[in-house]
């Protein structure tokens, strides 16, 4: 029962978030700030994760391929496919749910408990549109960029690990990367990313915005935000994958 009323409240919030901003100049300025905060500041962790992820995928694939019938380029092919289809969009989004989600919800939650949101409202500012819309816009715009960046680095990580361990050659890896390539894989991955970015930021904003109490409660909502947005990502991933595969 509680989950239904929470969902209702969430959609009501979204309804208000997507109102016309009080001033577009301020909206764009805030959006660029958020791109910095949500997007650019996440580049290092995404880079680190992606390189190692790609390296491990490639190594695992290479070392498990002891049947001689499988051509060597399978390593490149599998690394590319799993990176593009799942690892970059889903795993990196889950990581970002932790980083961005807790950041967004504690920032907004802190503003709530210190009455800064009330102060905005008293001035006649639509606080939801002012605070949340730029964050959502930034996520929708910048998450796909982050994920493409992640894909590139993951594939690079795979290559480095193969060369360093001598398990495969550059030629066959690159050949594998280019075989059976479908543009729709990228479309699928990036569409997912947009949805995940939206879910992370909107859910975390929701928990932050409706925080009641003090600093302790800000911590609680931030945990809640990360847990809920991770679950939302997993569910959304399942449904989007079904939609793409079964159409």
């Amino acid at each position: 029962m509680k989950i239904i009323s929470q969902l209702g409240k969430y959609f009501m919030m979204l309804w208000i978030v997507f109102s016309k901003p009080d001033k577009f100049k301020v909206f764009w300025k805030r959006t660029f700030e958020e791109i910095q905060l949500i997007g650019i500041n996440s580049l290092p962790i995404v880079a680190l994760m992606s390189v190692f992820m790609g390296a491990v995928i490639a190594l695992q694939t290479a070392s498990n391929m002891d049947t001689p019938w499988l051509p060597e380029y399978t390593i490149g092919y599998i690394t590319r496919s799993s990176t593009i289809l799942e690892f970059s969009p889903t795993i990196i989004s889950l990581i970002l749910a932790g980083k961005v989600g807790s950041n967004v919800s504690s920032e907004i939650g802190m503003m709530r408990v210190t009455e800064q949101i009330d102060a905005l409202e008293i001035m006649g500012v639509n606080s939801l549109t002012y605070l949340v819309l730029p964050k959502i816009t930034a996520a929708i715009v910048f998450f796909p960029i982050l994920i493409m960046f992640s894909m590139g680095l993951s594939i690079l990580g795979g290559w480095i690990s193969l060369i360093a361990s001598g398990l495969s050659s550059t030629d066959s890896y690159v050949f594998g990367l280019r075989s059976f390539f479908k543009v729709s894989d990228i479309t699928y991955a990036l569409s997912k990313t947009v949805v995940f970015g939206f879910l992370i930021v909107s859910i975390s904003s929701f928990y932050g915005y409706y925080t009641r109490g003090g600093a302790l409660d800000v911590g609680k909502s931030s945990t809640q935000a990360v847990v809920s947005s991770s679950i939302a990502i997993l569910l959304a991933n399942f449904f989007i994958t079904q939609m793409f595969l079964l159409k």
């Binding site: 800064q116 102060a119 001035m123 639509n126």
Partner: peptide
Amino acid sequence: RRELRKEIGMLFQGSALFD
């Protein structure tokens, strides 16, 4: 309400400055 609130100035007990 939002329009009316533009005519209100409020000092909060905890100041509520944007930090």
